[in-house]
């Protein structure tokens, strides 16, 4: 990888400019579908940036999660919102067109955002925009200056992580931080995912995805890919112990497999949609918490696995977490309660 760090400044400038341009277009393009597509492209480029920053673990999570799952969720939501948005595209005075112009104070005030413009005079709006622009620029300037100030070599906690790596049960530093040194955060993070699913289920009453007959080609591909993706997920869990990879990356691949299977017409058997599914969804938090608490009985601190079997404890936790994360992500995409 030595030649990568030698890449000229130009590559980073292009990557940075692309990110800013994609984000700006995703946030301002008049068509929502286009906005979502640009946002997914933004996620993929961000994945490249992570790889550029030697953050392979983040790249492996950013592309399936930040671009893939988030993109799929956005598209699924958009297809539900679609009827109104189509109307908006047909009639320029309707919602989306207004929204587009609200961000551009230079355009005529009559057609600008209906909610805002009718209450406040144009001068006031322009003043508000100017003040806000000034504030944002001041904020950007100070943030940039602070970042600049921070720019001197510093190793952070690298030394400490490397010193304690042999006791952690894994050889890959990021996995050691996630599953051992800061395992408490990771446990709660899986709880956040589960919480989001409980929240989504508390809102929805029926499955969000319509039961249209799937495309035969897609169905064929999904049947081919799904087993392969499960294999890849298993590989990612295993490889996480000594190289980039781990439960979250594996879980998102598993979740994507679930989404593909669902799109190709596969349904969970009726008997499995009740408590067996819920058990799988809760498994990650439950196993993690159980092991973390059980060690207290052995005289260890909370979540302090004894070095001798830290490796096995982490593997069990990661397997359970992968299953849960995959199931939660697929369920989030499908939306309604099964």
């Amino acid at each position: 990888m030595a030649w990568l760090t030698g890449l000229p400044l130009a590559v980073d400038l292009v990557l940075g400019a692309t990110l800013l341009w994609l984000a700006w277009r995703a946030l301002s393009s008049p068509d929502l579908f286009q906005a979502v597509a640009l946002f997914i492209a933004f996620g993929v480029i961000l994945g490249l940036v992570w790889a550029r920053l030697d953050a392979i673990d983040i790249a492996l999570a950013e592309i399936p999660l930040g671009a893939g799952v988030t993109g799929a969720l956005l598209l699924a939501a958009l297809s539900q919102l679609q009827p109104a948005e189509v109307d908006a595209r047909a009639a320029p005075s309707a919602t989306e067109a207004n929204e587009h112009q609200a961000g551009q104070p230079g355009q005529t005030a009559e057609t600008a955002d209906a909610d805002e413009a009718q209450h406040k005079p144009a001068v006031f709006r322009a003043l508000l925009a100017a003040v806000m622009g000034l504030l944002l620029f001041a904020a950007l300037f100070s943030l940039g200056l602070v970042t600049w100030q921070l720019w001197e070599p510093s190793s952070g906690l690298t030394q400490q992580v490397n010193t304690h790596l042999p006791e952690s049960g894994v050889e890959h530093p990021v996995t050691a931080v996630l599953l051992n040194f800061r395992g408490y955060d990771t446990l709660l993070e899986i709880a956040v995912l589960l919480l989001a699913l409980i929240g989504v289920w508390s809102l929805a009453t029926a499955s969000n995805l319509g039961d249209t007959t799937p495309e035969p080609v897609l169905a064929a591909l999904s049947r081919l890919l799904a087993p392969l993706m499960i294999l890849v997920a298993a590989y990612l869990v295993w490889v996480g112990a000594h190289a980039p990879g781990g439960a979250f990356q594996a879980g998102s691949v598993l979740g994507a497999a679930g989404v593909l299977l669902r799109l190709s017409g596969w349904r969970l058997p009726a008997g499995a949609a009740g408590w067996p599914l819920r058990l799988v969804l809760a498994l990650g938090v439950a196993v993690f918490a159980f092991i973390g608490l059980a060690v207290i009985g052995l005289g260890e601190p909370l979540l302090g696995y004894p070095t001798a079997w830290a490796k096995h404890a982490i593997l069990v936790i990661e397997l359970a977490a992968t299953l849960s994360i995959g199931a939660i992500l697929a369920s989030l995409f499908i939306g309604g309660r099964p």
């Binding site: 953050a55 999570a61 988030t70 952070g156 992580v161």
Partner: peptide, 25 residues
């Protein structure tokens, strides 16, 4: 990535992984 050794600091990387998952949720 500004570590002198070239090997990036794993702690912020792990934090960002956590953050990405929270953002998806």
């Amino acid at each position: 990535a500004r570590t002198p050794g070239g090997e990036p600091d794993p702690v912020p990387q792990a934090m960002v992984l956590t953050g990405i998952v929270v953002a998806v949720a």
